[in-house]
């Protein structure tokens, strides 16, 4: 079990994360927040790439920094920017990383074959990666994270560059993996984790906002998400007064999905809140700033 205890991270005067406390046991956790919210900082601390400015992270009661090699032996990590050598083939590169992970060569070769088959790259295992698409590179990244059969798998934006089919395949893979290990996925794409995560962690204003199941997080908007039909002429006014989640044109009118926490009006149909609704609601200010 990983316990994050009152962790803060500062870079000079800038605070990236403040007073975060979390607990992780086996299962799949989705770390969901917009870009720049501090997800990668938390991921980097969990991967021991950076140390907390205050607080500590423990694995089974032991500080992960102090565990050093013993912790990294348990760790599989896919960084946000997966780097590789263009002139290496996937097999060569995985063999290189396997050596760094302390896996004997013969054992590594077998594991590499198995993993490349799992990520559908067996056919190109000896081809140089410089000709690979973004999705293929990302699949190599996923394979490398699994090389040492990690107990803790941390994936930072793992679906970047994957097409919808690859994403679906990846979700299945993660579901299988999370049965017997701890998997933490950082993403800003709600659909990547909504259907597979046991728990969602959301960070807002450098602090922990939610750590709960999808259902419970969605419950925070219970009876607050509606759909209604709006004339084109009223749309601008409607946008100003409500948090719009989606807009769809149909038969010359607009069907809008929105959040309203006050009294329900006629013609508003209450709908089941989705994780994306919560995400859009909670980060509406940050997303407007980001535009």
């Amino acid at each position: 079990m990983i316990v994050v205890k009152d962790v803060s991270k500062q870079y000079g005067d800038f605070t990236a994360l403040e007073d975060i406390s979390l607990e992780f046991s086996n299962g799949l956790y989705g770390l969901l927040a917009p870009n720049g919210a501090g997800k990668t900082t938390l991921i980097k601390m969990l991967a021991t790439l950076i140390s907390p400015s205050s607080g500590e992270i423990q694995y089974n009661g032991e500080n992960i920094i102090a565990m050093d090699q013993r912790y990294r032996e348990l760790l599989g990590f896919l960084p946000q920017q997966f780097g590789f050598y263009k002139n290496y083939s996937p097999a060569q590169y995985l063999l290189y990383l396997a050596a760094l992970k302390g896996i004997p060569k013969q054992q590594a070769r077998l594991k590499i074959d198995e993993l490349l088959a799992k990520v559908a790259l067996s056919d190109v295992k000896h081809k140089k990666m410089k000709k690979f698409s973004g999705g293929m590179i990302q699949r190599v990244g996923i394979a490398q994270a699994l090389l040492n059969d990690p107990k803790i798998l941390i994936l930072d934006e793992p679906t970047a560059g994957l097409d919808p089919k690859e994403r679906a395949r990846f979700r299945h893979l993660l579901t299988d993996l999370a049965r017997e290990r701890l998997v933490i996925i950082s993403t800003h794409i709600v659909s990547d984790i909504e259907s597979i995560a046991n728990e969602i962690i959301m960070i807002k204003n450098k602090r922990l906002l939610y750590k709960d199941s999808v259902e419970q997080i969605c419950d925070t908007l219970h009876n607050a998400v509606y759909e209604t039909t709006v004339d084109f002429g009223q749309l601008d006014e409607f946008r100003k007064r409500h948090v719009l989640l989606s807009e769809k044109q149909e038969y010359g009118k607009m069907i809008v999905r929105f959040i309203h926490k006050g009294e329900k009006k006629d013609g508003w149909i209450p709908v089941q809140p989705q994780l994306e609704d919560v995400f859009l609601y909670e980060y509406q200010d940050e997303m407007i700033e980001g535009l």
Binding site: K44, T48, L49, E73, G83, Y85, L97, L100, Q144
Partner: peptide, 20 residues
């Protein structure tokens, strides 16, 4: 080269770690 190609984070999170 490793730094500009973003390979260091992979290397440092492997068993070998910063000793690399």
């Amino acid at each position: 080269r490793d730094r500009t190609r973003h390979i260091v984070s992979l290397q440092y999170t492997a068993r070998k770690g910063r000793n690399l």
